[in-house]
Design a protein around this nucleic acid. Sequence first.
RNA 1: GCCCGGGUGGCGGAAUUGGUAGACGCGCUGGACUCAAAAUCCAGUUUCAGCAAUGAAGUGCGGGUUCGAUUCCCGCCCCGGGUACCA
Length: 892
Amino acid sequence: MFYTYQMEYNFSAFEKKWQHYWLENKLFASEADPSKPKFYCLDMFPYPSGSGLHVGHPEGYTATDIVCRYKRAKGFNVLHPMGWDAFGLPAEQYAIQTGTHPAITTKKNCDTFRRQIQSLGLSYDWDREINTTDPAYFKWTQWIFIRLYNTWFDTELQKGRPINELPVPEAVKAQGGEAVQQYIASKRLAYYDNAQVWWCNHCKTVCANEEVLNDGSHEKCGTKEVERRFLKQWMLRIPHYAERLLQGLEGLDWPAGVKDMQRNWIGKSTGAEVDFIVEGLSQKLKVYTTRPDTLFGATYMVVSPEHNLVNELVTPENMGAVDEYIKAAALKSDLDRTELAKEKTGVFTGRFAINPLTGKKIPIWVADYVLMGYGTGAIMAVPAHDTRDFEFAKTFGLPIVCILDPESAEPALREKVLDGNACWTEDGAYINSANTELGLDINGMNKNDGIQTVIDWLMEKNLGKATVNFKIRDWLFSRQRYWGEPFPIIHWEDGEVSVVEDEKLPVKLPETNKYHPGESGESPLSNVPEWLEVLDENGRKGRRETNTMPQWAGSCWYYLRFIDPKNDKEPFSKAKENYWMPVDLYIGGAEHAVLHLLYSRFWHKVLFDLGIVSTDEPYQKLYNQGMILAFAYETVSGSKVPSDMVEEKDGKFFHTKTGEELKQIVAKMSKSLKNVVNPDDVVAKYGADSLRLYEMFMGPLDATKPWTDTGVKGVYNFLKRVFYFFAEPENIVNGEEDRDTLKVLHQTIQKVGNDLEDLKFNTAISQMMIFTNHCYKKGEVSKSTAETFMKVLAPFAPHIADELWTKYGNKPSVSQQPWPVFNKEYLEEDTFEYPVSFNGKMRYKLPLPIAMPVAEIEKAVHSHEMSVKWIEGKQIVKTIVVPGKIINVVVK
RNA sequence: GCCCGGGUGGCGGAAUUGGUAGACGCGCUGGACUCAAAAUCCAGUUUCAGCAAUGAAGUGCGGGUUCGAUUCCCGCCCCGGGUACCA
């Protein structure tokens, strides 16, 4: 049925209708079907906060939704799920304040999020919705933890293996059962140990290294109340997978920046370990260096204050000073150490080591610029060629010996370096680097050859060996909180630690009304004796682990559960996993570039090694959506002014109270600036299609961009124009389509399709606007053209597309129609309007047959009346003709 | 400091492998419709000069390669993100 009069674009009259239709008819439900190509498209599932959706969420969700709708039209079997990463602190803090159980808050927040997401017309398969706080879900999180606990990493095979395959050395076996257990524990990927950890006094919990920002604040709460504590904690040996995690990046279609960040975080470095003889001590001092080639220039050594040889190294007369220094260093946090990086501190131990190459005595110092957690916690210092050592040597007047001539440096700098008055870390030619007695001479060599030669020599003389080091540390995996997955672990009174059997999972959270964590790191779970205390069949007493898992746990494997979310026999069916994995497109914020994505890759690789999943990597293509910002206002002095205190006059901004002129800036949306945009309001005012379209039209998906209400109005106008034109029966005619219209239509089919493959939504929308503008100029199009356009528009604005599609007498839904095939014939032209340039400047345009030979084109250009004034009095040097592109005449 | 991005009209942003700079949208200006307004439609809109035709300049700055550079190379400046004594 056609409209018989021009109707308003009354989106609210049909958006809800179509959303219900899609949902009720399960249009977007998908089942594994090996006969069809699959496409697994995933959003980073949200933490359902109490404040609801903000406009940043729909950005990524709309992008994936458009891709999914497009891929379905292209014949793919699409998996597109949504769920909730619902463990976390806010619900628990709320519980502490109000006594409301976090499960209640969480459910309410999830309901809000679901309602908001559904109001955007996103094509999720809601039958697959999951929630990390659901025992039916975290049963399997616990199950995976047990797998981690029961896995060791075989360095030789570079592969995780079941713990029962771990070869135990005879020497350990000889020491008895306890030693064997300890040995096994030392190899498990999950282990329980005393660790120096970050403790947040505000959150009353420990946090991962990764969660402490470099300004010393806690990522989760923003306070700077973090400090070091020693606590018994669960740790995961992610460094065992460092090399695999690094190598795995190679084949992934990820933003280069994210790969770089992961590489930096893993922090692989190659170098050598070198043993130094210490005067008057039987133990040798082992250092790690990436520059073994500079051994000739090592003039002193430094051990970190926590080094286990410090007490042996320090001589009686230096004991007092060293003790004092170590105590002071222990009180400093890593942050303090870093902040004071400008001024190096340290103290002499009184002991000397021998430089194996020069034979000279070199002093051993203790200094906190050497960290215990990296390498061996001791270094050889080469002040001439390491900036940190140089600063230290300058501060304490230690000798600086240049052993690498900076040939490429400017003469003045080179002079200073040679004299030991400047530091040089680049390449050059070695000097003072030979010891003929020991058979080593690298003088004249460059850095690369020098490093290799010295390493070979060290190996040969048994003084050291080539070594690889990683920055990445063990992952602190427990939190002293209530609202998290309980560990499936029991500590028995006899000291044994055991995991809960698979059949007894999940270990659920107990009911309690005391959510307060203890002052000294006991979890709220330790206040629930009936849950805490257990007995085994022999009457042995045990206590459950009271820590809970960090929020990262649930998100480490959720993409796998989406594949088979209702399975209560196993985490997911092997066959389905085999069909759907890997995730083909994963879109989310760049803030997860390291933590979530690295943790998740780690778990996945373990599961892969154990044969539980079929791919080595979980996410094939990753894309980060940019942040959506808002305009904000500040005074000349830089203080921010809330948006409701600002008025605009002639493009300038003024304070409503003081009249002061204000500067418009771009900032994050915040309650205090009163510039937060709520998607619900946008949907109410302009409709879901407008919100979707605007989010995509703002700019490239990965760009950071400011929200403007006039921008929303822009795409809303576009949709109105679409509606007015395509809902008007007089505009839609029967019969053959006009050639011009076919051309623009097929350009649009092609451009939109290509842009979607590249995630270039903004230019795709622009092309649809061009098509619509063309239709207005023409005044009418054929029914077939209108229907084709609806198929192209449908992924972006599915409600209006289905509304118009059915008005043409078609059965719903247009989203089940195949993507239109573009026909190249319509795009071909027999003439091309050449831009004619003289010396590279475009001067006029000349339409010529596309098939015209180059020689004739030249003739036509040279003889053209417009060319006269550019050629007159000059000589034509040459004429460049690129057929179908440009003509450039070079004159002199 | 180091590693990634990015600087294009009044604004958001377009420009295959180097080939018409400013698509599309916002805003603005003018016109149509209207008693009027809103809505809608049509036209114009990089800057400067000119009534116009047209000309000159122009993609952060300075050089270079090229018939031709937003695109490639060298040296800077600014903005955003990450990271930071990792030997």
